[in-house]
C-alpha cells in the first residue's frame, strides 16, 4: 500500500525550517496558467508540470504558480499570465514547455518581458 511516511516528512520539515530562515518567504512574481477545459485540452497541464519541475529543480521560492479558467481566447491556448509585484500583468499565448521556462527565467525571475511570446505588447494603435 502506498502512503507518505511520517518519518520522511519530519526530515523534510527540519530541512525546510533550516532553509526558511535564509529567505523572506515573499513571492516576487505570480505565473497564472489558464486551465479551463480549452486550456487543458490544448496542453496546459504540460505547461504547469514543466514550471513546477523547474521550480523544484532550482529550488525557486519566490515564484507562485496558480491556475485560472478560460481567458476567452481558446484558440491561443495554452496561455499564461505573468504578474510581477507592482508591474502590469502580461499574457502569453501558444505556449510550449520551452517557452514557459524561458518566460519563468527571463520575465518572472529577471523582470524582462519576453516580447516574442507575449499576446499583445504595444499592438494597439491610436488613429487620432
Amino acid at each position: 500500500m502506498g502512503k507518505l511516511s511520517i518519518e520522511d516528512l519530519a526530515k523534510i520539515k527540519e530541512e525546510s525550517k533550516r532553509k526558511m530562515n535564509l529567505r523572506d518567504g515573499e513571492y516576487k512574481a505570480k505565473i497564472n496558467v489558464h486551465m479551463g477545459t480549452c486550456g487543458i485540452a490544448a496542453g496546459a497541464r504540460t505547461i504547469v508540470d514543466a514550471l513546477l519541475r523547474e521550480i523544484e529543480k532550482k529550488d525557486i521560492k519566490e515564484i507562485m504558480v496558480t491556475t485560472s479558467g478560460c481567458a476567452g481566447l481558446c484558440s491561443r491556448e495554452p496561455m499564461a499570465t505573468v504578474e510581477i509585484k507592482g508591474g502590469a500583468p502580461v499574457k502569453y499565448a501558444d505556449l510550449t514547455e520551452a517557452k514557459i521556462i524561458k518566460i519563468l527565467n527571463e520575465h518572472a525571475l529577471a523582470g524582462k518581458v519576453v516580447k516574442e511570446y507575449a499576446l499583445a505588447v504595444g499592438s494597439e494603435k491610436t488613429t487620432a
Binding site: 502506498g2 502512503k3 511520517i6 516528512l9 520539515k13 525546510s16 532553509k19 523544484e56 521560492k61
Partner: peptide, 27 residues
C-alpha cells in the same frame, strides 16, 4: 493494492512548512 494521500494529514506533519515548498512537492 492502494495509494492514499491526505493533504490535511500532511499539513499537520509539516507544521507550518508550505505544502507547495519545492522539497515537499518533490517528495
Amino acid at each position: 493494492d492502494e495509494f492514499e494521500l491526505d493533504t490535511r494529514e500532511l499539513k499537520r506533519q509539516l507544521d507550518g512548512i508550505p505544502i507547495n515548498a519545492p522539497e515537499v512537492m518533490t517528495y
